[in-house]
């Protein structure tokens, strides 16, 4: 069936709640209202208000209670309404969720998924459009997953729910309703830790994830006219990174463009760039180029200028080809 990304989220949750009694959904407005983006629409009607829980407006309690529930055998999928509002729960995520397995010598291991919409493209300004993945990738003990399409989203969310490590699952708001694609019905899994070659090519590699996969694909199509064969790698799981696929592509093309919406400095692109300099230096034909959001808060009026566009990606490809 053809679904949007937000419907794919709903579908994955529904399937997993049906399959596994341990799965519960909690967060602000997720129950009766079905979530502000309707990601949990209709779930409470099916699974009851004990498994689809409207919580008080307090992110730290949502994450903390999820941790507790998981210690007692439930598998909570918490929704944080916007990634911009995850910061009150930072202590819970950075000090508790990520470190509990470690500090207890493996005795207490929280099995929790935190879903949150992120990214620009819906005119959200400084507090509804951020891309905060780097904080979480930087925190040992968390997995970070970002899908790029509805089918990918269903498969990755299902795998995230089944993964016994804590997962921060970030959903690009820009993709929630803009894309519709065929999504497999019933059980559907996409493994974590594996990148996807979204478009094989031989001249330049674009490394990207989330909604920037689409932007990069557009740029790649345009570059065909200039006889440049672009490979687009959809990273999918930022932590743990599929280093094999990334390095293999880098060795093949020797020219790298990294695209993400998050700010440039200390962004995920910086890490990939460092890794490639360690693992594929001798294969590089040109410096690695990053196309990213700017090192500013996300502006309201000029949000479209803030996010990488196909034009900016094309310019980067031309630069690396000319080097």
């Amino acid at each position: 069936m053809e679904l949007t990304l937000v419907q794919a989220v709903n579908d994955a949750l529904r399937e997993e709640m049906k399959r596994d009694q341990r799965v519960v959904v909690l967060g602000e407005d997720v129950g009766k209202y079905g979530g502000v983006f309707k990601a949990t629409d209709g779930l409470q009607a099916v699974f009851g208000n004990e498994r689809v829980i409207d919580t008080p407006l307090n992110e730290q309690a949502i994450v903390g209670a999820s941790i507790g529930m998981s210690l007692k055998g439930l598998v909570p999928v918490a929704e944080i309404q916007f990634i911009d509002f995850i910061h009150p729960a930072f202590d819970q995520i950075v000090s508790e969720l990520s470190k509990m397995r470690y500090r207890s010598g493996g005795q207490y291991a929280p099995h929790v998924v935190i879903r949150a919409p992120f990214g620009a493209g819906t005119k959200g300004g400084p507090y509804h459009s951020q891309s905060s993945e780097s904080y979480f990738v930087h925190t040992a003990g968390l997995k970070v997953v970002i899908p790029s399409s509805p089918a990918e989203c269903k498969g990755l969310l299902t795998s995230s729910i089944r993964d016994t490590d804590p997962v921060i699952f970030m959903e690009s708001k820009r993709l929630y309703r803009s894309v519709r694609e065929e999504v497999p019905e019933g059980e559907y899994l996409v493994p974590l830790g594996k990148a996807r070659n979204a478009r094989p090519g031989k001249d330049v590699t674009i490394l990207t994830y989330g909604s920037m996969v689409q932007v990069s694909m557009k740029a790649a199509e345009v570059m065909c006219e200039e006889d440049v064969d672009v490979e687009v790698i959809d990273i999918r799981t930022l932590m743990p990174l599929d280093i094999e696929t990334v390095v293999a592509s880098a060795k093949k093309t020797g020219r790298i463009v990294i695209v993400h919406e998050a700010p440039k400095t200390m962004g995920f692109g910086a890490e990939i760039s460092a890794l490639l300099s360690e693992k594929a230096f001798d294969y590089l034909k040109a410096p690695i180029i990053r196309v990213t959001g700017y090192d500013t808060p996300v502006p309201f009026s000029l949000e479209d200028q803030y996010s990488p566009s196909p034009e900016r990606v094309i310019a980067a490809i031309r630069n690396t080809m000319a080097y």
Binding site: G68, K72, S95
Partner: peptide
């Protein structure tokens, strides 16, 4: 930070 964990465990036990 552990208070909400105690809440979560008791909540799950209650369920």
């Amino acid at each position: 930070t552990h208070l909400s964990h105690a809440v979560g465990v008791a909540w799950a036990a209650m369920m």
